[in-house]
């Protein structure tokens, strides 16, 4: 046996969940260094769905639908810690506000969005109306926004609200199918999603309503992340992480782990926190 669970080296990585494991792939530029993909964390009894990263403490956070629970672990080598165990149904998407030191998650059974501080304390329900199948959730701490997607087959939608749950509004609802994956790039201010119903990847600037198609004909996206010009999504049919060049609108690379099973949430673990200040510290 080889002890192949090592502290994750410095640099920017992709983190994704697959069948009782959180794996990482180092990034080179905005592409993947596939040959150095490894397991960051074994959680053999869990089904991990959502993955998020805190760039301040270099911690990975996840949702687990089997316990169900929300947990975290230090990527530099640390034991998993359970943060939240009670009053969860099916916790799916998770997002970190590294400036406000809080985490947000969706629960598709309780049909709500909740928030808590990063140690699991100060928990409260943020949104509990008009949610049917909430899944992906993303933060934009610099501007104080929260984005999420609901794959309700009767009325799928992508929504935005302030991080305190106020000023909620629908960003997209037409021509959506199963918007499973969602990502926001603070550099370009682009919100992008991957849809397993329409089989499209689309992007928009949330302030400009300029929705545009990046790619079509993709198979079955689940999670999505971004870095530079690239978009990354996990695919349930291909059991792989797929890279899309968002400028060229085409697939450029694929990583298929040795183990053939579904891949779930994916997140970019930045080497350094994106610059910016807490919107709360301004006023």
């Amino acid at each position: 046996p080889r002890p192949d669970v090592q502290p994750v080296p410095p640099g920017t990585h992709l983190l994704f969940a697959q069948s009782g494991k959180i794996e990482y792939i180092p990034m080179e530029g905005s592409g993947m260094k596939i040959s150095e993909a490894k397991t960051a964390l074994h959680l053999p009894e869990k089904v991990v769905i959502g993955v998020a990263y805190d760039c301040v403490e270099r911690m990975v956070y996840w949702t687990d639908i089997t316990t169900p629970a929300i947990g975290k672990a230090d990527l530099q080598g640390g034991e998993p810690v359970q943060l939240i165990r009670s009053d969860l149904g099916s916790p799916e998407g998770i997002a970190i506000d590294h400036l406000g030191r809080t985490m947000y998650w969706t629960d598709s059974m309780k049909d709500r969005i909740e928030v808590a501080s990063l140690d699991g304390a100060q928990r409260r329900v943020l949104i509990d109306t008009d949610l049917v199948n909430p899944r992906a959730i993303i933060t934009d701490p610099n501007n104080g926004y929260l984005y999420w997607a609901d794959w309700n087959r009767n009325a799928p939608k992508i929504e935005v609200a302030h991080m305190d749950g106020t000023s909620r509004r629908v960003l997209a609802k037409d021509d959506l199918g199963l918007p499973n994956g969602l990502t926001y790039d603070p550099q370009t201010s682009l919100l992008c999603w991957a849809d397993a119903g329409t089989h499209k990847v689309e992007c928009m600037n949330p302030n400009q309503n300029n929705r545009r198609q990046v790619m079509e004909g993709i198979q079955y996206p689940f999670g999505m992340a971004s870095h530079g010009k690239n978009l990354f999504y996990t695919d349930w049919r291909r059991n792989a992480v797929i890279v899309i060049d968002s400028y060229a609108g085409r697939e450029t690379e694929e990583f298929q782990p040795q183990k053939r099973s579904r891949l779930y949430g994916i997140a970019t673990a930045y080497a350094q926190c994106p610059s910016g200040q807490n919107y709360c510290s301004v006023n």
Binding site: D4, E79, S261
Partner: peptide, 23 residues
């Protein structure tokens, strides 16, 4: 295949047959 988790010395299987998972 399997691996040893360094801290706990626990042995976990890493490439279970298709459809299966767990320690």
């Amino acid at each position: 295949t399997c691996a040893v988790v360094p801290k706990t010395r626990e042995v976990v299987c890493t490439s279970c047959p298709t459809g299966t998972t767990g320690k």
